[in-house]
Design a protein around this nucleic acid. Sequence first.
DNA 1: CATGAATGAGTATTCATTCAT
DNA 2: AATGAATGAATACTCATTCAT
Lengths: 210, 210, 210, 210
Amino acid sequence: MTRTPRQKRALATVDAIVEAGFIAVATHGVAGTTTNHIAEIAGIGVGSLYEYYANKEAVYAAMQERMINDAVATIQPLLNEIVRLDIGDAVKMLLAHFEIFLRERDGRYLKYAQDSLNVNVKLQLEPLTKMLQELVMRYLMAHPAYLRTPDIPTMSYIMINGGIFIVLRHLSDPNPPISFCQLTDGLADMVSHYAHNQMARATVTGTAGD
Amino acid sequence: MTRTPRQKRALATVDAIVEAGFIAVATHGVAGTTTNHIAEIAGIGVGSLYEYYANKEAVYAAMQERMINDAVATIQPLLNEIVRLDIGDAVKMLLAHFEIFLRERDGRYLKYAQDSLNVNVKLQLEPLTKMLQELVMRYLMAHPAYLRTPDIPTMSYIMINGGIFIVLRHLSDPNPPISFCQLTDGLADMVSHYAHNQMARATVTGTAGD
Amino acid sequence: MTRTPRQKRALATVDAIVEAGFIAVATHGVAGTTTNHIAEIAGIGVGSLYEYYANKEAVYAAMQERMINDAVATIQPLLNEIVRLDIGDAVKMLLAHFEIFLRERDGRYLKYAQDSLNVNVKLQLEPLTKMLQELVMRYLMAHPAYLRTPDIPTMSYIMINGGIFIVLRHLSDPNPPISFCQLTDGLADMVSHYAHNQMARATVTGTAGD
Amino acid sequence: MTRTPRQKRALATVDAIVEAGFIAVATHGVAGTTTNHIAEIAGIGVGSLYEYYANKEAVYAAMQERMINDAVATIQPLLNEIVRLDIGDAVKMLLAHFEIFLRERDGRYLKYAQDSLNVNVKLQLEPLTKMLQELVMRYLMAHPAYLRTPDIPTMSYIMINGGIFIVLRHLSDPNPPISFCQLTDGLADMVSHYAHNQMARATVTGTAGD
DNA sequence: CATGAATGAGTATTCATTCAT
DNA sequence: AATGAATGAATACTCATTCAT
């Protein structure tokens, strides 16, 4: 009956379950993870797991939420700084911290993200996406010149999604043909050149047109 | 003992199993697909399935191989034409055919790709990757100006992987914020501007610097 | 250790648990009732339930006892009146009050009786049976003519058990082929005719034979 | 996927499961019986049970059907004879064979009937009830004098249901206050006297009225 | 070669009962 | 006394795999 935890002990348990979920998934994969695994790792009985989560799905949902929120919490404090950077450096900084986030605590999130961020994702990336859109907005405010870039929503979509998946793909490749540094530099390059190019063209066009 | 099929009938059965696999996955999803489903759709007994494949994994592996090979077979004939195109149009043509490929035969491959192309995929993308690298090579031969682009391997990696995952992600989003056309145009734009920009810079730098 | 409650509060709790048991069973059925349900309805913690009852069985036993005692308490006051009635009316009155008893307080007892009065019941019908036997005795004292009926114990057994089960069966039939009134009239008829017939025969036989 | 059995082996298994069901229930009671118990007794794996029955409920349903059909098959051949008997003897014969039926093969059906013939029976007594109604009809044809009995449906209901439950109750009482013989004689007596009495009265009334 | 009935280890989930607070 | 969080044995059901026919 999915109890709403009120005591500290209970809250600690709820937390331990989610943590155990990440460890279990990192160990056995999403498909190989059982509620008993999770409970054992959390150091509780299976029954206790069901005191706080209606079913396995609910545990995964909580893990998702935790991961996304944690990602947001990791990136959010950087926004002010990123906004001030040159666009290439902004991309690099973002990706670098995304990598750190995925690798921290023994890659606790990495495996879960790889297994559960299927392309047919039900994953509520919303908070993360929202924050990244906010970043784009703020960046545009700070660098109004880029506002002339055509079809900003599309470019945001490509950059955000492409960025997330390429980084995940790279991190899961045991023997990647390029280094992570090359990857981020490449992405940063591509983005900054595109932006500058567009801006330049927009200026020219704008001048010519007026 | 997984027999190596030599007779036509056996070959037909092997084929039917893989086909049935795609249909089963499209119908029930990867998690919901059982060997009995596959055998039934293939019109054979479960026992027969195990005559040709050691286990379920082997069937999925065969499906993967089939899908990749089919993708290669779909794209390969286009290479001569693509090579001759402007870089933006080349990207658009490639992505357009990739979409067609994923949607053909009632999206036969789409569901499987979405469910199994996890980021931590063991997926043997090799043949596809190889072909796409060949494409890049040939394209560079046909358009030597682009050879000046710095770090071509990285850009290939980004474009190939980013392209595949972004398209899959877009196709699996029931309510995408941008159209597929916007997506391909955006990617093509980004790539072509980057290339031209780099080329221009390389030319300038080369001329000026030396 | 199932404590013997001596304090008012404890007595009230013991009572609340039994009451809650009936409500829980009426709501979820015997199979669907859990000790947590009962405790929650009783407004206490599960732990407290176990302070007063050794286990779930004990709660059900207490419910049984309560129900039987309540049935006795309901019928007992009527005995004086019933004893004075014609035998047919006596049966009707008894059955009518039995129905009322089962339906009262939203059929509080009905569901429990239907679910737990299996035929292989360990149910302590004793007090009820005893009272009904007392009724038969007193009725016979008040109407000595019936004393000539042969095998009174058997007829009591049939009437008492048959009456209880037929009424329960009828009340649990959502679409009974006959009305409750028809049922009681029929039973009353059968009993009274049998009794009169026997009495008459006994008289004749007695007179003629002696 | 609840296979429809076509092979003899399969049919034998289907049968063994139902048989095992009765044994398991006789041993552990309905509540204490598990699908693993049944499978073990049937000498098969649990999985096989689920090849033929969608779930535990389905097994119980099959047992019910089997028991009812068997009861009908036991009584049916006696109808011709019963119809010719005096009403008291008819009742006695019916009850005697009902007892035999419940006791046969080590009381194979008895425990199941006691546990599952809850008063809130979902039990499909239909075929049995139908047959007994047929018996009543045929009996009335053979003994038209009884046709004058008022409210025949009610009396049938009382006799049929009362008979079934009283016999079950008696058989489940480890220490019954009266013998089975006394019970049947008592019931037969009651029924026959009622019938004769009614008939007599009906005749008188009929005569008087005309 | 083909079959499909049989298998049983494995999984999610429940719930009576306990015990630290 | 009272509590309710924790427990874990127990249960229904699934499905990849085998093997007798």
